[in-house]
């Protein structure tokens, strides 16, 4: 029954202008940004700058990878991301003293994953609207994380793990390695496994997927559990490398992640998308953020420019889809 979905997707890859646009747009956008950057500032196209840019965006990039599954499977978006990031970070640093850094980090991951599982049960099994469900769980979890630390700030103790997280292997920071590693696992998971095809099928047509014996509830729930885990991982990594954590540590990350996924071209309606595209989206948002600073714009302009690009990219995409008669 999964084959029913596959041919439909390969048909989409025909040479309509829309398909061409969506295939080429990401590499072209990255190229354009790199050209603008190297013209604008001599310090842009240096190994140091590019490594820093990627390093700074890897943590939130992890969340975008998870959010891809959420959107592909028709789960709209996970708005509880900041809460799960905070949980991961605060539990890790809070439990560090009593149980050691390694165990504390695992604990942080576990708690954040639990948050994701709760989202999954509410959305996948109870079929509550994802926006409401994750607003609710986000509110509860963020409150709990603040309760945990009395609304204040927690400091890390020096540990081997945090030294490792801040270090580089072969000249590339560990953050980037982790991002590459997770992307290398998740891309084939979505593109080549049954679970990936289930996700696409559930997002494409829920009833049809259900009728074809796809475990629709599990598939949708798993996407949210995964995003919870990755948000937790982001929190743990940030806490260990920053040496401190506050409950607001992940504020706005849900929007950054959604933006990266959407710029990558994954449909918000569900049913199509790829992890590789999201990686492209993360690169584009990272480069935009860097260019804004290098070109001397105030950093507050980031949201303005990112938002305008989202509108532009999605608007053009919607236009081509309509032209191809698929909307």
């Amino acid at each position: 029954m999964n084959q029913l979905v596959a041919p439909a997707r390969s048909l989409d890859k025909s040479t309509t202008p829309g398909a061409l646009f969506s295939t080429l747009s990401i590499p072209i956008a990255i190229l354009v940004l790199v050209v603008i950057g190297s013209v604008a500032s001599p310090s842009f196209l240096t190994v140091n700058n590019l490594t820093n840019v990627l390093n700074a965006n890897s943590a939130v990039g992890l969340i975008a990878l998870g959010m891809t599954f959420v959107m592909v499977s028709g789960g709209l978006a996970d708005l509880s991301v900041p809460a799960n990031v905070a949980m991961g970070a605060l539990v890790t640093l809070g439990a560090q003293e009593s149980m050691g850094t390694g165990l504390a980090a695992l604990m942080g991951l576990l708690v954040a994953s639990m948050g994701g599982v709760v989202n999954g049960i509410l959305i996948g099994y109870l079929r509550i609207n994802p926006i409401i469900a994750t607003l609710g769980t986000g509110s509860v979890l963020l409150g709990l994380s603040q309760l945990l630390v009395g609304g204040g700030i927690v400091y890390a103790q020096p540990s081997a793990l945090s030294t490792f997280v801040k270090s580089s292997i072969l000249g590339i920071p560990v953050f980037i390695w982790i991002f590459i590693f997770v992307a290398l696992i998740l891309h084939p998971l979505l593109a080549r496994t049954s679970f990936g095809r289930w996700s696409l099928a559930v997002g494409g047509n829920y009833q049809a997927a259900q009728a074809s014996a796809v475990p629709v509830r599990f598939t949708k729930a798993a996407a949210f559990a995964m995003t919870g885990f990755l948000a937790g991982l982001c929190g743990v990594l940030l806490a260990l490398s920053n040496g401190q954590a506050r409950p607001i540590i992940g504020t706005g990350y849900e929007f950054v992640a959604i933006t990266a996924v959407v710029i990558g071209g994954t449909s918000v309606f569900g049913g199509n998308g790829s992890v590789l595209r999201t990686v492209g989206g993360v690169l584009i948002t990272a480069l935009i953020g860097n260019l804004i600073i290098l070109l001397g714009f105030p950093s507050q302009a980031t949201g303005l420019i990112t938002g305008a690009i989202v509108l532009g990219a999605v608007g053009i995409d919607a236009y081509f889809r309509r032209k191809a008669g698929r909307l």
Partner: peptide
Amino acid sequence: MVVVFKINSLVATLATLLIFASLALL
């Protein structure tokens, strides 16, 4: 954005959320 450019309202208003929050700060 939603009616003429046919952008899903979740994405369109997320974008305007970012744009105008940023503009207010600027």
